[in-house]
């Protein structure tokens, strides 16, 4: 008996070591089979709190990646919606997310450069939008980059219609304020109220019908005029534009060829 005690005492450290390791491995095995203890995990209130603080700080550094992922997801979801919308179950409109890498908003002829080009299937004349509304139309296509003619360029003409009664007008920009554009060609007999919604007409192959463009800010009709002068507050905020989607219409070429054939 005494000898046994002596041996135990002599190897006590080793026995403590073995006992502790067995306990640790029991914890590992029990915890991996079914994590019971939330106290010894990041569900622990203090640990969770500090992790949230961290993620709130580090979140800012990954905002760019997150935005890119969201932009891609938006494009994918819009493709799915279009596929469901099309009556003949043929999705002719595809959306491709792109990033604005350069742009101006303070000139008469503003342009936006996006990071998609020929190799991504971008073609001249394709529409560009973002989650807010219409951005512009593809003007020049490079291999990897393209230039967009935005609504806020005095060269731009966009066929629009009133959401309430389908009257057609042409949207142009007067070169003054990147928040507003002018809707022309709206006949005087039509009643225009501030707050009316302007959407794309769907008459051109560039955009499908119904993409929001803007909201009527005010309209003037001088004595003897046959057309309204309508100021439209654009949905798209060009000052903070970052991610856009290119609307790719499979039928763009065919529709254009048909129209050119008529000329």
């Amino acid at each position: 008996m005494q000898n046994l005690l002596k041996i135990l005492l002599r190897y006590s450290n080793f026995l403590v070591f073995i006992a502790l390791e067995v306990a640790a491995f029991l914890l590992i095995i029990l915890n991996s089979a079914y994590p019971r203890s939330s106290m010894f995990s990041t569900a622990n209130r203090f640990v969770a709190w500090q992790n949230r603080q961290i993620s709130e700080i580090t979140g800012y550094f990954s905002l760019r990646t997150q935005n890119e992922q969201l932009a891609e997801e938006n494009a994918r979801l819009r493709n799915m919606i279009d596929a469901m919308d099309s009556t003949d179950n043929r999705a002719t409109m595809h959306h491709m997310s792109a990033k604005a890498v350069q742009m101006t908003t303070d000139r008469l002829h503003n342009y936006i450069t996006i990071d998609r080009g020929e190799i991504d299937g971008i073609r001249r004349g394709q529409g560009v939008r973002n989650s807010e509304g219409v951005v512009g139309i593809i003007r020049t296509v490079g291999r990897k980059y393209s230039v967009v003619l935005p609504l806020i360029n005095t060269h731009t003409n966009l066929s629009c219609r009133f959401a309430k009664n389908d009257y057609i007008g042409t949207l142009q920009w007067d070169g003054k304020d990147s928040r507003f554009a002018l809707l022309t060609d709206v006949a005087a007999h039509m009643v225009v109220n501030p707050g009316d919604t302007i959407i794309t007409s769907g008459l051109s192959p560039v955009f499908p019908e119904g993409i929001p463009v803007g909201i009527v800010e005010n309209s003037t009709l001088k004595e003897g005029d046959s057309y309204h002068t309508i100021r439209v507050r654009l949905n798209t905020n060009f000052k903070r534009l970052k991610y856009v989607e290119v609307v790719q219409n499979e039928d763009l070429n065919e529709m254009e060829e048909l129209q050119h054939g008529l000329d």
């Binding site: 450290n13 640790a24 914890l27 590992i28 915890n31 010894f40 990041t42």
Partner: peptide
């Protein structure tokens, strides 16, 4: 010493969701 090691390990495991691994 070993008990202190176990304590430090368990604290670390709490932060890593790895109960027992750092302890061991």
């Amino acid at each position: 010493d070993m008990l202190l090691g176990a304590a430090a390990g368990i604290v670390m495991d709490t932060f890593c969701n790895s109960l027992g691994i750092h302890t061991a």
